[in-house]
Simulated scan of single mutants.
Amino acid sequence: MTEASHQTKKPFLYVVVCASGIAGDVHKLITSAQEQDWDIGVIATPQGLGFIDAKAIEAQTGYPIRSAWRSPGDPRPLPPPDAIAVAPATFNTINKWAAGISDTLAVGILCEAYGLGIPTAALPYLNTAQAAHPAYDQSLDRLRGMGVLFGSYEPHRPKAGGGAEHFRWEEALELLTPKVLGRA
Rank of each mutant, 00 (worst) to 15 (best):
S139E: 03
A172N: 04
P134Y: 07
N127C: 11
Y153D: 05
P155R: 06
E170C: 05
R144L: 10
H133E: 06
E165G: 04
A122R: 01
A164L: 03
D141C: 08
G147E: 02
K159Y: 13
Y153R: 07
P124W: 03
M146P: 02
F150Q: 09
M146Q: 14
T128M: 09
H166R: 12
E174V: 14
P155K: 07
K159H: 11
P155A: 02
G163F: 10
F167N: 02
K159D: 15
T120L: 03
G145S: 05
G115I: 07
S152F: 08
L173C: 05
E112G: 11
H166D: 14
L126Q: 02
P158E: 15
R157M: 06
L143C: 03
T177H: 07
E112C: 12
G145I: 05
R144K: 15
A129Y: 09
G151Q: 08
P119F: 01
A129L: 15
S152C: 10
E112D: 15
F167S: 04
L173H: 00
L116Q: 15
Q138I: 08
G117T: 12
A172P: 06
L116Y: 09
G151P: 12
G151I: 07
P158H: 08
E165R: 09
P158I: 10
S152K: 11
P178C: 06
S139L: 01
Q138L: 13
T177E: 12
G163K: 10
A113M: 06
E165H: 12
D137G: 14
L173K: 06
W169D: 01
K159I: 14
L123M: 14
T128Y: 01
L173R: 03
A129T: 15
Y114A: 12
E154H: 11
L175N: 02
H156G: 05
W169Y: 07
G117R: 10
G115V: 07
D141Y: 08
L123G: 03
F150H: 12
A121S: 13
E112R: 13
P119C: 05
L116W: 06
H156Y: 15
Q130V: 02
H133A: 11
T128W: 03
Y136G: 00
D137M: 14
Q130L: 10
P134W: 03
V148N: 04
R144T: 11
V148I: 14
E171T: 01
G163T: 10
Y136A: 06
A131C: 12
L149E: 04
Y114V: 14
H166P: 01
A160P: 08
Y125F: 15
E174S: 13
L143H: 04
A131W: 07
A160W: 11
L123P: 00
A121E: 10
K179R: 13
H166W: 13
G147K: 02
E165K: 12
S139D: 04
Y136T: 11
G163C: 09
Y125V: 00
R157T: 04
A135I: 05
A164G: 11
L173P: 03
A132D: 14
K159S: 10
R144D: 07
R168K: 14
G117N: 14
M146A: 10
E154G: 06
A135L: 02
E174Y: 09
G161S: 05
F150Y: 15
R168M: 12
I118W: 03
E154M: 09
G162C: 07
M146G: 03
H156I: 09
R142W: 08
G162Y: 00
P158R: 09
Y153T: 03
